[in-house]
Amino acid sequence: MIFHRLKVGFHRLGSPPTFHKLCRILSPWLWAGFVACTAIGLYQALYVVPPDYQQGDSFRILYIHVPAAWQAMAGYVIMAILAAIALVWRIRTVEIMTMAAAPVGAAFTALCLATGSLWGKPMWGTWWAWDARLTSMLVLLFIYLGIMGLYAAFEDRRKGARVACILVLVGLVNIPLIHFSVEWWTTLHQGSTINLFGESKMHPSMLPPLIWMAIAVKLMFGGALLDRSRNDLVDQDRRKRWIRDVIGEEA
């Protein structure tokens, strides 16, 4: 019985007016949570956490760099799951969500690369190195941009989304490469500090802001994903009756 109701609820999300309403209700909460978590996280990162024994205060950029990198990769996995659903069930709102995830993921990837570069210059002595970790992360940015470009290249948005969804699945192979690059090959980039299934190499006093920022970027990804999806949906359906009903209700 419960399973049946969940299934009905899931199928209702495929209906544009219901999906539109859900995005409109959820997104402000996600954005508010993002602002609150970022405020706590940044305050702790800049004022509470002690400096590092080797890198001094410079290491604090980690509290932007690492959550951005995690979200760039987690965002891709979410996008790939949405792409699989979109390809198998052909639900239009899911296709729209998949395509809305790409620019957000690309932004986090770019943020990760930019902060990494700013951090690399004073610590390593170089802005960039063609090692396995940095290169695979740059490839991730190009994959994101490729998905966006492919989607935009089709006159028929649904056809464009389906073709781009296949590229999303193809690019998924890069995610384990990014993660294991520092283990499989020698790199200039350090190994993993945080291990979910083992001992982390960060002193516990430095961890709380990292957790706050990791939650913050997840909420921001969700907020931006829902907003972008809603905008794309309204744009595609702008001549339809339900939009006129919704806009009329808002105005």
Binding site: P50, P51, D52, Y53, Q54, Q55, F59, L62, M123, W124, G125, T126, A129, L188, Q190, G191, S192, T193, K201, M202, H203, S205, M206
Partner: peptide, 17 residues
Amino acid sequence: DEVLARHDETYMPPEVM
């Protein structure tokens, strides 16, 4: 002709060190 520094994955406060 180029020397880069490589740091490991350990982060801790100076007092702990």
